Amino acid sequence: MESQILTTPPNFAPATSEFDANAWMHVQLQRTEQALSAWVGVNAPANLGDAMRYAVLDGGKRLRPLLVLAAAQSVQGLPEAAIRAACAVELIHAYSLVHDDMPCMDNDVLRRGKPTVHVQFGESQALLGGDALQALAFELLTPSELEVPASVQAKLCRILAQAAGAQGMAGGQAIDLASVGKTLTEQELRHMHSLKTGALLEASVAMGVACATVPAPVQQALARYATALGIAFQVVDDVLDVVADAATLGKTPGKDAANEKPTFVSLMGLDAARSYANDLLEQALAALHDSGLQDVRALSALAHLVVSRSH
């Protein structure tokens, strides 16, 4: 698949001497939306493209693509590899939501403030749309070698496949479904979410890092950052499921409690869960400091965004 994306300066950042997190995110979100719009659902038959585009475009926080691009910026990675990785991880995330929302899984009717894909297009189109998004993710990671070196392609595909499969997101969802009505320890809950939610967030950072050649200590520090961030994201998600309304959250609140799913709030209490999220933020920021990288401002801003978000 040939690139249809406008060229971008190698440093990924707005032309300014002072770092403006909102301006940086605006630029990266524009790049991501442009790329997704150009690549998702193009020439898909029998209205399949409509379901694919509905699942991906015009919605979502795009945290995973932003993490890819921020990590790639921090290590001065290849821009073309980074934008493809950013889109690929978002497609895996989107496909997982399409499938998770279906009646055989969570049976939810609201996602990103609009009807879920199976409600809008029917279960068959939702299932096929999710399948097609998963396949497209890996197609984006394997362009011609003139665009992305084969060695980088292989690394990106391996990272994403491992994060999405049985030892990652899919495995975590299986544990989640098997844990309904059960009481989990904090360690068990952390393990479940480190797979279900954390694996793809960790992969986002790892994919950004894989766009360059990076010393092992730097990789390890950024991996610690991503691990803390992944758990923090889920803790905040559990808090919001209790305190936010549907209009703010963009999805049905209170589903976890109604379905008797274990959460950090049910295990720790609301105040302790909020405090835990802040502790995880400090761990993530300390890991960034330990990386020794000169510019981790975007990664730092994203960590703060995860913990302070309201939806």
Rank of each mutant, 00 (worst) to 15 (best):
A82F: 03
A46D: 15
R62H: 02
A23I: 04
D50K: 11
M52A: 09
M52G: 06
L127A: 14
E123C: 06
A55H: 04
R31S: 05
Y95G: 10
V40Y: 08
G77Y: 01
H99D: 06
C87K: 08
A44M: 08
D101A: 06
L36M: 02
V119T: 12
R64H: 03
S124V: 06
F19I: 05
Q76L: 07
G41V: 09
A13I: 02
V119S: 12
G60L: 11
T16S: 11
E80G: 00
V68H: 03
Q34H: 15
I83T: 01
E80P: 00
E80F: 00
D20F: 05
N107G: 05
Q34C: 13
Q30T: 15
Q34M: 15
A82M: 01
A44L: 09
Q76A: 14
W39I: 10
V89W: 08
Q120N: 03
V98A: 00
Q30Y: 10
L48A: 04
W24I: 02
T32K: 04
A15D: 13
H26C: 07
D101L: 11
G59Y: 00
H118W: 15
A70V: 04
N22H: 04
T116C: 15
R111E: 13
V56A: 06
R31Y: 04
A70S: 12
C104A: 13
P65Q: 02
A55N: 03
R53N: 03
G113H: 13
M25E: 11
G122I: 12
R64T: 04
Q30P: 02
S37L: 10
T32W: 05
L67M: 14
G113N: 14
V68K: 02
F121K: 08
M25V: 10
A71M: 05
A94R: 10
F12T: 03
L127I: 15
V42S: 04
R64K: 11
A70Q: 00
G129L: 12
A46G: 01
H99K: 15
V109S: 05
A85F: 04
N43S: 11
G60C: 12
R112D: 05
L127M: 15
A72W: 02
S17E: 14
D108V: 00
C87R: 06
T16P: 00
G129V: 10
P79H: 03
R53D: 02
A85M: 08
H118M: 13
L29M: 12
F12Y: 13
N22C: 09
Y54E: 04
R53M: 05
R62G: 01
K114Q: 09
N43A: 13
D108C: 09
G49H: 03
R111A: 07
Q73V: 06
V89L: 12
D108T: 07
L127K: 11
S96R: 07
R84C: 01
T32V: 15
S37D: 15
D108A: 14
V75S: 01
N47P: 01
R112N: 11
L48R: 07
